[in-house]
């Protein structure tokens, strides 16, 4: 039974991840963004410089907290210590929303620190929904979950990923973070249509879009890897435009760069392009 949670109101705007390399830029307060997103786990701490900086940035900008370690697909349930610390951060920062990924990262003994794929089965769906109910209950708010990139599918799969996400949102009243690059990466790795994926989702539940770069396939490795370490490729920009055409409203759009982080102007140029595409799609001349 899904706990009662308040709906997440749509927030339209363009933002960046707050990364250490750009702390000084954001502290100056003149970065032209509408919000920032931070990796939850980097701030589930007690004090120190990075927490002070986040709190200073939060005074000027809305913040989204985006996790990588909730392990919402863990068959053995959620880590209570993790949830307690996430709740403290949520209360301290009062974010627009709290997000994580449709994946699992750990079992009872070890943590892979990677976003591992789930078999798309009824059993996994039930485990995910039970865990989302638990997390939303602890946090006292609806959460947002991101579609992952994946590098394998399971022989036991019973449904498509978009069907899984649709059932998940219906059962838990959670929302979606649409990672357009991840859709592109998985569609190439597993041979499905990215457009079918978009068309199959409950797009009214989308509250955020991620745009990122990836490591292309090579002659030796016929798999695209989601790396967030380079510029966004043209097919992903095109898929982003298609997604905007299909969405009922403009969500929060973010350029996600986690490695080989360039100077801020380079990311702002990509963000300007995301803005321009949205203007051309949503307000055609």
């Amino acid at each position: 039974m899904s706990p009662q949670t308040n709906p997440i109101a749509p927030f339209s705007g363009f933002g960046l991840g707050l990364r250490r390399t750009h702390y000084e830029d954001f502290l100056r307060g003149d970065v032209p963004v509408d919000f920032v997103e931070v990796i939850s786990e980097n701030y589930m701490i007690e004090g120190g410089r990075q927490m002070r900086i986040l709190e200073e940035v939060r005074e000027r900008l809305p913040v989204i907290i985006h996790g990588v370690s909730m392990s919402i697909g863990s068959a053995r349930g959620l880590d209570q210590d993790y949830l307690a610390k996430l709740k403290i951060l949520e209360q301290r920062i009062e974010p627009l929303w709290v997000s994580d990924h449709l994946c699992w990262t750990r079992n009872s003994a070890h943590n892979s620190h990677d976003l591992l794929p789930l078999p798309l089965t009824q059993e996994a769906l039930q485990a995910v929904c039970d865990n989302i109910d638990h997390a939303q209950n602890v946090l006292g708010r609806a959460m947002v979950f991101e579609n992952p990139s994946s590098y394998l599918t399971f022989p036991e799969d019973e449904m498509s990923e978009w069907e899984f996400l649709t059932e998940m949102t219906k059962a838990t009243a959670c929302y979606l973070l649409l990672d357009v690059n991840n859709i592109y990466v998985s569609s190439k790795n597993h041979g499905f249509s990215a457009e079918d994926y978009l068309a199959g989702l409950p797009l009214d539940r989308v509250r955020q879009i991620h745009l990122a770069g990836h490591d292309p396939a090579t002659p030796e490795r016929d798999i695209i890897i989601d790396t967030h370490d380079r510029a966004i490729v043209e097919p992903v920009w095109e898929l982003y435009a298609k997604a905007l055409e299909m969405l009922p409203h403009l969500p929060a759009v973010m350029i996600e760069r986690d490695d080989h982080i360039p100077p801020l102007p380079e990311l702002l140029t990509e963000l300007d392009r995301a803005r321009a595409i949205s203007e051309s799609v949503l307000e055609p001349a």
Binding site: S112, S150, Y151, T153, N189
Partner: peptide, 12 residues
């Protein structure tokens, strides 16, 4: 699946 696992091993 083996090729995908190689990616996850590398990521880890």
């Amino acid at each position: 699946q083996a090729a995908g696992m190689a990616v996850y091993r590398g990521n880890y």
